[in-house]
Design a protein around this nucleic acid. Structure first.
Lengths: 192, 192
DNA sequence: AGTCATAAAATGAACGTTCATTCTTTTTTT
DNA sequence: AAAAAAAGAATGAACGTTCATTTTATGACT
């Protein structure tokens, strides 16, 4: 029991170190030796928890993505009206990206590079279904534009990633007023 | 003269090969030997044109970025009214991303990873000034929302990158109708 | 409770490979 | 013939992964 506990701690440390180092250096410029060192572990120990480097980063991606969507949909259920549901989800996503900066940065990098296996990418996409359902409902009720989900996503949700990256690079400071403006822009771009 | 001519061809081949290989494998999974092979050149020859691998990718980034912005602002000048100017620029950007897919993918990857030096990133940003000026004018005339340029960019220009990546991954096909919809969403999100 | 045998977990060193870069030689151009 | 450009082979460092060994935890038996 104490043994299992310890293992989980080590695994978490490895995941955390991977996120941090990949954010700063990229996947291929992050040696296993450095991940091990940051997690206070021997390089060989990584291979007790993961098959290899690719498996490590795939698993980290899927776990972070799952955590992200769990957070995003926490206060949402299908009984809530479309406009309100969208606002709830959008603001939770913004929350996540502002609070869990490292995790969000990691996802942004994964989504824009060939770093992740295609299958893991697909896996990560599945979790977004509630949002797609909401948009479908919104279209049927004539509340939002009859557009492809990719367009809806591109103009309402995805811009948050861009803003977060800019904030992270220190080029501008994102505050609560900005977020209200951003939400308004997001809604204006998809509402009918 | 004939010698210089030949050199430029080799250099172009190297740039092209770098873009292609980095798009498919990422920066660090693209060995100089493969770039050389794809450009039909010896690895050593690369070092006649570029200082090292980092210098190569930085220069490719800046050149592609310059080509991109030159294309974007081709038909625009400061006498054109704000709304019309925005439409011209937006559609040229969309054009570029659809026609020069490899170049656009390369920029998207550079903008979301630690692959490029910070100074090169800054350098690439400078070229966007005409768009910033246009927004400033739009705000003063009360035509577009009084928002930070980062918000304006995030909700009007940047989504195109997302759409292009999705298209490139084959998850959906972007056609002319989509582009009209996308432009409408872009404008709705920033107009007052 | 304490001892010890066994198994699991963890380690550091070592291996084989890959890669960026350099060096020496050959080819091409002037 | 001299200089510039290009080539391929060589070099040394870094990396992912494995291996042999040590450390730690577990549980049976006194």
């Amino acid at each position: 029991m104490a043994q299992l506990q310890k293992s989980i701690e080590k695994r978490n440390a490895l995941v955390k170190a991977t996120i941090h180092l990949v954010n700063n250096n990229g996947f291929h410029a992050t040696p296993m030796s450095k991940i091990a060192k940051m997690a206070s572990v021997s390089p060989a120990t990584i291979y007790l928890y993961f098959d290899n480097k690719q498996d490590l980063v795939n698993k980290v991606y899927i776990e972070v993505k799952a955590a992200f969507t769990a957070y995003a949909f926490k206060n949402y259920n299908t009984d809530i009206p479309v406009a309100e549901g969208f606002e709830i989800i959008w603001k939770r996503i913004a929350d996540f990206k502002l609070k869990e900066v490292q995790e969000a940065m990691f996802l942004a990098q994964c989504d824009n590079t060939p770093m992740i296996d295609e299958t893991s990418r697909q896996e990560g996409l599945k979790h977004l279904q509630p949002l797609l359902d909401l948009w479908e409902r919104g279209k049927q009720e004539g509340i939002i534009k009859p557009l492809s989900p990719y367009l809806l996503y591109a103009y309402s949700i995805n811009p948050l990633s861009f803003l977060m990256v800019m904030q992270q690079r220190g080029v501008f400071q994102l505050n609560q007023d900005h977020l209200e403006d951003a939400y308004r822009a997001a809604w204006d771009s998809i509402k009918k």
